[in-house]
């Protein structure tokens, strides 16, 4: 049996430790939140083009904020918007009109018009180009981008 005096003293130590831990723990949690600010994803709708400038079979390029490029294509009435960032290692793919394909010059990645990789390293990994949702309002085509803020 521990003497009462000692037991009380120990209990106070525990209470003190707990109070210190709680307060400084909270403070530290704030500091961690400060140092690693969580970035929220925000969707935004931006103007891409008018339907008249993207008839079936046509494609056009649009630059998004932050330097991303978006390739808009109209394949038989279906409007698609694809990112030009190769999912393999982040190079820039470009559209090859005559071959009807996207080509990544870094490691010879090839993507079909719908963005699915058909050859090269991205195909082996089963990757595809990022696709952005698109909406048509009146004659205007809008892109729905996600941004980190």
């Amino acid at each position: 049996m521990i003497p009462r005096q000692a037991r009380r003293s120990l209990l106070r130590w525990v209470a003190l430790g707990f109070a210190l831990l709680a307060s400084y723990g909270t403070g530290a949690a704030y500091a961690v939140r400060f140092l690693f600010p969580t970035r929220r994803r925000r969707e935004r709708r931006v103007f891409a083009c008018f339907t008249s400038s993207l008839p079936p079979g046509a494609s056009l390029k649009r630059r998004a904020p932050g330097g991303r490029e978006v390739l808009l294509t109209n394949a038989a009435g279906e409007i698609r918007a694809l990112s030009n960032i190769c999912p393999h290692l982040g190079c820039t793919v470009h559209w090859e009109e005559h071959e009807s394909r996207f080509f990544c010059p870094c490691h010879q990645g090839v993507f079909a018009p719908d963005g699915i990789a058909i050859s090269g390293p991205p195909a082996k990994a089963g990757q595809r180009l990022e696709r952005f949702p698109v909406s048509v309002e009146g004659e205007a085509v809008f892109l729905h981008l996600t941004e980190e803020v």
Binding site: R12, A15, S23, Y24
Partner: peptide
């Protein structure tokens, strides 16, 4: 020493409360 423990513990509770205000 015992009184000190209590004072410090109370202070930390106050600090914690102020941190709640911060939140």
């Amino acid at each position: 020493l015992e009184a000190k423990k209590i004072v410090v513990a109370l202070l930390s509770v106050l600090f914690l409360l102020s941190l709640l205000v911060v939140a």
